[in-house]
Design a binder for these strands. Structure first.
Length: 580
RNA sequence: GCACUCGUAGCUCAACUGGAUAGAGUACUCGGCUACGAACCGAGCGGUUGGAGGUUCGAGCCCUCCCGAGUGCGCCA
């Protein structure tokens, strides 16, 4: 609907230009906003305000002229000039109903496919395999997964890349510890990666001989020593299967096939450096191979270096990231690469992107974006920690979420059996954690609070899940199937209209998430939708409505709401419940 | 020291990236179950958007300067 209106406006502007009312040499960008105030119609444009000065006209007069130049159509009910020169548009109800009927009849709610399908490489999760996944790994996995789902939904080809860290210097220490243990003892120790890492670290810090051995093993590993590689392989296997368990519990759609580890780029690293050398970008400084970029300067105004090879000959993550960019363009044929990595690596990615372009590793047509995110904080405003002050393992966090959800259910005199409650508690627990994260602005820090996220009040997963079960329970009390109501929609009550106006915005909401990589737009939308449904539900009887045409219309509205909630939540990676 | 991010109701968060009277939830105060799930809904209270200037028809958003917080700045990733 927005696109159609944009088209009408473009035609109007062209007409005014041909009439010399507007200067023809002016690039016109049509901006359409959803007004905050409902009395301002469905859409508003500031077109006349922007063009008033160059056209040397009074903005309100110009707005009138724009309205007069809009071609005849069935889209609009009316267009009014308001305030200093805004134009407010109201869609015709016929148009609204038509749009809703299309959504009702379509599996994908009539969400349009992207005009040109792109191949989008999404780098997300990417934990370091040396340790168990902890709370710091939550955001990348959840947000990246939601954006991946949205990108697929609008028809883009998504290639997930789980750029796991399996090649860093800590692996020497881990291998040395493995080497010192034997068979069963090692298997047992490996069953808890966290304690394994700590034990290895302790020996590394305390024993000089052990530390020396650890350094030897890094070199051995990276130069391809067979026994060393076998040990390493065994460790990686344990760690990856642990990650997979977490993904499965979280409902994050990553699998082994998406793993493209740091080590996979190993053979290309020397080539990356050689290519930088060949282009004259490389400078040796204090024994290290660096590229100095003019775009980034320090306090003295000197260019900052990107170090691609250590004085000892080793490569760094900058080198690996450059190799990965090349791979993503040349082998994966990416049109766009999205990185969901902690905000703190912002400078690193700016440097890498700049360097990759300068070195010709990636063409200008490939879009590279780092989407950073803030830190998960405790209620004290400090980074989230477990009770003992250590980092919280993700597995433990999810255990606690499920446990708390189960206790919550028990306190609500649920009608469900014990077994059903177990399942429902899992869904509520996990989705509460995910939703609490997704509903916050991606780029800022947020405070992790069990009580808020597990509440049925406010913008939370339990509230949305509950709203969904309320809708579906209506259909459990009738023999009319939710998907096969042929009666037309009648929007007579203001609350029906409000709900309808929200339902029709699903398309643009999905696109705003895809464009900005901001899942919280969708959360806000679903919360508004659930609220509008609750209001409607309280005020407008559905099954008890005596007039049949109205009863069927309301059922259809309820069915479309359920479908939109379910689809929207699924795009966030959250599953719905039929009863709870 | 330099760079980036942030500062919105007591608290947790929005504000569609420059639009109209800054909105939700929570807490607090009222009201609503002999209609489909009250795990809900409705109403009220609550603001000098950290401060001061500036840009323009219009600023929470852009620019400058202060105040406060966080993060990053050569061989970890």
């Amino acid at each position: 609907m927005k696109e159609a209106l944009e088209q009408l406006l473009a035609t109007a502007v062209a007409t005014l230009q041909s009439q010399q009312t507007l200067p023809t040499d002016l690039p016109v960008r049509i901006q359409l906003d959803r007004p905050r105030d409902k009395s301002h119609g469905d859409f508003a444009t500031n077109l006349a305000l922007l063009l008033a000065k160059p056209a040397s006209m009074n903005p309100r007069v110009l707005a009138e002229a724009v309205i007069a130049a809009i071609p005849a159509n069935t889209l609009l009910e009316k267009a009014d000039v308001a305030g200093p020169g805004f134009i407010n548009f109201t869609f015709s109800q016929q148009q609204l109903v038509q749009q809703l009927e299309r959504a009702y009849a379509d599996d994908k709610l009539a969400v349009e496919l992207a005009t040109t399908a792109k191949t989008v490489v999404i780098d997300y999760s990417s934990p370091n395999l040396a340790k168990e996944m902890h709370v710091g790994h939550l955001r990348s996995a959840i947000i990246g997964d939601a954006v991946a789902r949205v990108q697929r939904f609008i028809g883009n080809t998504v290639i997930a890349q789980n750029h796991v860290g399996d090649w860093g210097t800590q692996f020497g220490m881990l291998l040395a510890h493995m080497e010192a243990l034997e068979g069963d003892a090692m298997a047992m120790e490996l069953s808890n990666l966290e304690t394994f890492y700590k034990a290895a670290k302790k020996r590394f810090d305390e024993s000089e001989a052990f530390a020396t051995r650890a350094r030897e093993l890094v070199v051995a590993l990276q130069s391809g020593d067979a026994t060393c590689r076998a040990l390493w392989q065994q460790f990686i296997e344990v760690s990856l299967s642990h990650c997979q368990q977490v993904y499965d519990r979280l409902g994050v759609q990553l699998s082994r096939a998406d793993v493209m580890a740091e080590s996979a780029y190993n053979d290309d690293l020397a080539q990356v450096v050689a290519d930088l050398q060949a282009q004259g970008l490389l400078v040796e400084d204090q024994g290290a191979q660096c590229v100095f970029l003019d775009e980034f300067r320090n306090k003295e105004g000197d260019a900052l270096p990107v170090i691609v090879q250590k004085s000892g000959g080793g490569f760094l993550y900058a080198t690996t990231d450059l190799a990965a960019i090349r791979y993503r363009q040349n082998k994966l044929h990416a049109d766009q690469v999205m990185y969901f990595v902690d905000q703190r690596q912002g400078l690193h990615f700016q440097q890498i992107f700049t360097l990759a372009r300068k070195a010709g590793f990636v063409s200008d047509s490939v879009q590279l974006d780092h989407y950073g995110f803030g830190t998960v904080m405790g209620k004290d405003g400090r980074p989230y920690k477990s009770r003992d002050g250590g980092v919280t393992k993700l597995a433990d966090l999810l255990d606690e979420a499920e446990k708390r959800a189960f206790e919550l259910l028990q306190s609500k005199n649920s009608q469900l059996t014990e077994a059903e409650q177990q399942h429902v508690a899992k869904v509520i627990g996990i989705s509460s954690v995910k939703y609490a994260d997704l509903s916050k602005n991606r780029s800022s820090d947020y405070i992790f609070d069990w009580d808020t996220m597990l509440s049925f009040e406010g913008n939370t997963a339990p509230y949305l899940l509950y709203a969904y079960t309320r809708v579906t329970s209506v259909f459990n009390k009738t023999n009319i199937a939710a998907a096969s109501i042929s009666a037309p929609l009648l929007l007579e009550d203001e609350r029906e209209l409000a709900l309808a106006n929200l339902l029709v915005r699903f398309n643009e909401t999905v696109y705003s998430v895809a464009d900005k990589a901001m899942p919280h737009f969708l959360c806000g939308y679903l919360f508004d939708l659930a609220g509008a449904f609750s209001t409607f539900y309280e005020a407008c009887p559905i099954l008890a409505e005596p007039r049949e045409d109205r009863r069927l219309s309301r059922l259809k509205l309820a069915a479309l709401t359920a479908k939109t909630l379910k689809t929207g939540l699924s795009l966030l990676g959250i599953e719905t419940l039929e009863k709870m």
